[in-house]
Nucleic acid binder design. Structure first.
Lengths: 224, 224
DNA sequence: CTTAACCGGAGTTTGTAACTCCACTTAATT
DNA sequence: AATTAAGTGGAGTTACAAACTCCGGTTAAG
């Protein structure tokens, strides 16, 4: 893969290529932690280069974000498709939610793109449109098989996913797995019937949370 | 009630008092719609006064917010206490959640304060500390009576409330009652056991949502 | 009629983030 | 090793937004 940004096919100079990689790596981390509002100055600092270098390689912030999350988004789309090959439809649905959420909860930038941020481009929107139909199949199968309550629609899952991933981002720095607790609770609410709650005890809860809740809230506004 | 802001007890001039009321009324609406980031210029415009007038009456933004939400927060605290007088403990818990959420979902400013915004002061934090113990009683009662799964703690409810009210704010302008749909689902996940899901059909869903979801996301960033 | 309180809103201050510019450095080619 | 186009850092520019001030003109109250 001979990466280049310019109009014509001249390979980048060795140091330039090296820096491009450093920038991409740093941006991945910075946007994952701080979300898409992170400054390109922050990215540059994290990469150990000057801002100028970032702008030489990527025309603007959107371009960098586009290059960075191209994969991430249709990785999620693929998760939905491959979940659909599992034999048990409830397991498939749960597996998909866990996989998708574990990615979005750990990566604030990805969550913001999937949730539809101002930085997302047409190219990414396209991939996002591939997610909905695939999820719809998962839902319909689980409903036909009598696992999932049948008064739910695709958008319900978009919203529930949004709620959980938002929480996931807010708590990822103090209790990275806390979101699973609420996914479990919500899944218990989505099922047609059950005689007992799913196990929750092994998931993080009170101890971490009570101290953390304050810092979560404080963390909510200005980042880093 | 002879309102005044100055150090010594001189009643405000008639027009000043009138404006103070206009400002408070306007601020209530503006902060409810736009959240606490709303500009005092916006408040002034909504009140039909100049910014100067706002600043003459309230030393700064925090003071205005303080004066405005003093009640709101401990109204919620009172809800918890009065829920505790209901005979059925499950109904009490559900009633409290519905009441508290219906207030926070319709009022973005209130939600931000309860969630712990930078504008909240010690005075408000104090009231918030009154909420937690009262809710704890509700929870323990519902658990003792075998309604509520017993692996839940107070902070779980704080978090679930945060998740729902956040959604409520995001969707209040297109589907004011949508949050009830997810409260219902979550309650179905909190109950010890059930043979069927609670009724969901009469709550808003697909029709409104699919169009709205986009505008919700777009609305997420810069307001108004 | 006097005057202290009040009013509006243009303007100031402060802060932030995207992005540019250019003197200097360096990889690649001859 | 000389040449040079490509690349680099980071101070500086531009743009914008929001909190808050200032003051010439207005008005309620005694």
């Amino acid at each position: 893969m001979t990466t280049q940004t310019d109009y014509f096919d001249r390979p980048l100079r060795a140091d330039a290529e090296r820096n491009r990689a450093k920038i991409l790596d740093a941006a991945a981390i910075v946007f994952a932690d701080l979300g898409l509002e992170a400054t390109l100055d922050q990215v540059a600092a994290a990469a150990g280069v000057g801002v100028g270098t970032v702008y030489r390689r990527f025309p603007d912030k959107d371009a960098l974000i586009g290059a960075l999350f191209e994969n991430g988004v249709d990785e999620i789309a693929n998760l939905a498709s491959s979940a659909d090959t599992m034999e048990n439809s409830w397991d498939a649905l749960v597996w998909f939610l866990e996989q998708a959420l574990s990615r979005q909860c750990v990566n604030r930038g990805l969550r913001e793109i999937v949730a539809g941020s101002p930085y997302a481009e047409a190219r990414l929107d396209q991939a996002k449109c591939r997610i909905a139909p695939a999820v719809e199949l998962l839902i319909e199968r689980a409903q036909r098989d009598g696992y999932l309550r049948d008064d739910l629609v695709t958008t319900d899952f978009m919203i529930l996913e949004m709620m959980i991933s938002l929480l996931g981002n807010k708590t990822s720095h103090v209790a990275p797995d806390l979101w699973r607790r609420y996914l479990t609770i919500i899944l218990d609410g989505l099922v047609v019937s059950r005689s007992a709650p799913s196990v929750l005890r092994q998931l993080p809860a009170d101890s971490i949370m009570s101290d953390a809740l304050g810092s979560v809230h404080r963390h909510a506004r200005r980042h880093n």
